[in-house]
């Protein structure tokens, strides 16, 4: 059987040595020197997070080598996963759960898969599609009914021209509480200031 030629890059020496020992323990793989990376059939990259440097490395390899990539990473966000897939990553292995067998399976699948995304990554992409509906129609996870009764009371008095001290007196709250309520609603709803908060509440019929 023809050996799979692997280029290995890791963000720290310990990970590099660990993954290298895994790969060298299997007769199916030859680890090639990065200087000879043009001969590689699979690229294995290990990192803690997808930092700008790692993304740059992946983009370079996608442009220059165009070989499938196995990414070993501690954590990855949805947006980072999309970047990784764009850079020909076809397998993502959680760093803390990598074993010699799992690494070998992923590298072989990458070598034999012709760059086609495996079912688990297709599944992640389809989850992204499913989330679009929610993200587009209810940005920040909120709908127009996302105010508490306390927030509505404060906004109603703000709309009547009360200042923080007067609102606190009227509702028997401390001024700090009133300020926290105002900060909470403006921050959560991404409103610019008190006037915007009042306008929002009026427009949505909350007050």
């Amino acid at each position: 059987m023809e050996q799979v030629r692997v280029v290995l890059r890791a963000s720290d020496p310990l990970s590099y040595e660990g993954l290298l020992s895994y790969l060298q323990s299997r007769s199916e793989f030859t680890v090639v020197d990065p200087a000879d990376q043009a001969e590689a059939t699979v690229f294995v990259v290990s990192c803690d997070q997808l930092t700008a440097d790692v993304v740059a490395l992946l983009r370079r390899s996608a442009a220059e080598l165009a070989v499938p990539v196995v990414l070993v990473v501690s954590e990855i966000t949805e947006a980072e996963l999309l970047i990784a897939v764009e850079c020909r990553v076809v397998a993502v292995l959680p760093r803390g759960a990598v074993t010699a067998d799992r690494l070998a399976h992923s590298v072989l699948a990458a070598a034999n898969g012709g760059g086609v995304l495996p079912p688990n990554l297709v599944g992640e992409l389809l989850k992204h599609v499913e989330r679009l509906h929610r993200e587009v129609l209810t940005p920040n996870g909120l709908n127009a009914a996302g105010l508490t009764s306390r927030e509505i009371d404060v906004l109603r008095l703000m709309a009547n021209g009360f200042d923080t001290h007067e609102i606190a007196d009227e509702l028997c709250y401390s001024e700090r509480t009133v300020k926290n309520v105002i900060y909470g609603v403006t921050h959560r709803l991404k409103l610019r200031n008190r006037a915007h908060a009042v306008a929002y509440a009026l427009r949505t019929g909350m007050i």
Binding site: T77, E80, V85, L117, V122, R131
Partner: peptide
């Protein structure tokens, strides 16, 4: 990156046209 730009339509198109995305 929960609040970043949620769209990746161009990437999906590229993956599909290159045959890397198969559903």
């Amino acid at each position: 990156d929960a609040v970043s730009d949620p769209f990746a339509g161009e990437l999906f198109l590229t993956l599909a046209m290159e045959g890397r995305l198969v559903i």
